[in-house]
Design a protein around this nucleic acid. Sequence first.
RNA 1: GGCGCCAUAGCCAAGCGGUAAGGCAGAGGUCUGCAAAACCUUAAUCCCCGGUUCGAUUCCGGGUGGCGCCUCCA
Length: 462
Amino acid sequence: MQIYNTMSRKKEELIPRVPGEISMYVCGPTVYNYFHIGNARPFVVFDTMRRYLEHRGYTVKFIQNFTDIDDKLIRKANEEGVTVPEIADRYIKEYYTDADALGVERATCNPRATEHVEQIVRLVQTLIDKGHAYATENGDVYFSVRSFPGYGKLSGQSIDDLESGARIDPTEQKHDPLDFALWKGAKPGEPAWPTPWGAGRPGWHIECSAMSMELLGPTFDIHAGGQDLIFPHHENEIAQSEAATGQPFARYWMHNGYINVDNQKMSKSLGNFRLVREIAQEFDLEAVRLFLLGTHYRNPVNFSRELVEQSETALARIRTARERLAEAPIGDTPEADAAFMQAVDGHRAAFYAAMDDDLNTADALGAFFDYIRALNTFVSEPHGKAALDKAAKFFDDVTSVFGILQHKKEEELPAEALALLNERAEARKAKNWARADEIREALKALGFAVEDSKDGAKLKRL
RNA sequence: GGCGCCAUAGCCAAGCGGUAAGGCAGAGGUCUGCAAAACCUUAAUCCCCGGUUCGAUUCCGGGUGGCGCCUCCA
């Protein structure tokens, strides 16, 4: 499989450090609110990456952190008069609600920063000992950017160019404008942990270094996140980690593109944030997931209601095809079966080729719809069970990699609707079309569409 | 100023040296009591101007128009 490595700015063959195993770290949410559609993209994209790698036989260690201590959490806790851990616990729970609905599989581990303070302190101490970091009078600790020669290698920036744009907040006691906080000295009323250089709390960048090293070792395969994290977050992670261990940090860097809303960047001032929680009230989040996977992950995506509606229709097409397959008539047609099974192999190869090319889910989706058209034709006539089973296997492989059609909602149909459906069948038998159409309208009012076929009518929830 | 991305049918979106996948919407048809679903048919001077090449949407240069990072926002 080829993946685009932000570090080299090229597609590279993905060769795991340990054969058969992939170690992956994805930057997770800061848990001070429900997450928005922009946050959702990396969750969905890298979950799909993980699902695909597992499908292809890799064992994947998939780590996604929760940032559960930072300025935003502290502010929120103060606003509500509750503790920081209460805020964190609440929004971690809400994270799982939305992530589950988006079909995001649970990570191998979701480490929390506050549960790794010991490792963070140790890492900061190492950096101080090695001369890469310094503590200031007010208890902050900064990383000395100029002590790490490779600084800028991920973002393609030179230190001097960065220097000219950097500013120092007058309250900070940095030696150099580029230096960034590893540790923040305690302020009154804020959560703090004791350290050799004074009480305080972790800076943001250091937590990812500490937790990835703790769980995956000093060098691991893939580090992923949104493009906006390239600088400074990921650049800083590299500097801290490699300065501390003397070993390469992540081997491949993957970054997803942005999501705009109605062609504009989401921002507080524009008031156009779209929380996944709100979107869920209007749409099946599987449609949102399909929408996100319809564009290559490195390209920007524009989010709008209209576009998700299009994805909803497309998702319905996939669902319908799967249902038709499940109910396909059985017959004895060895020649047609053999030809179709060979065609399935071709479709599978096309799907893999797309996914192997830097996780091109948009292309893979195209291959899947090609398959669906062939399948819909195939199941309109009776065919052998072996061929249908093979067709189902490929179908389910694709949907499980895409993470769609996963919630199996075999809901009970209301008795009222079933009674109406029976009555309509009687009316149709009697060729009382007026009554049949009347009942169809009544069912529509109940939220069901009627689809007639040779073997009777079916109800579909609208 | 430094680093970088994008421009393909009405709307999305792949492809990226040999005259363009797929989805949604639209039109016509098959099927149906009528529908729905499904299937068939149907749509593109690939932003502009140069250059390289036998050949460019695809590579290079220059425009134009969008956009991002450099402000602990995925």
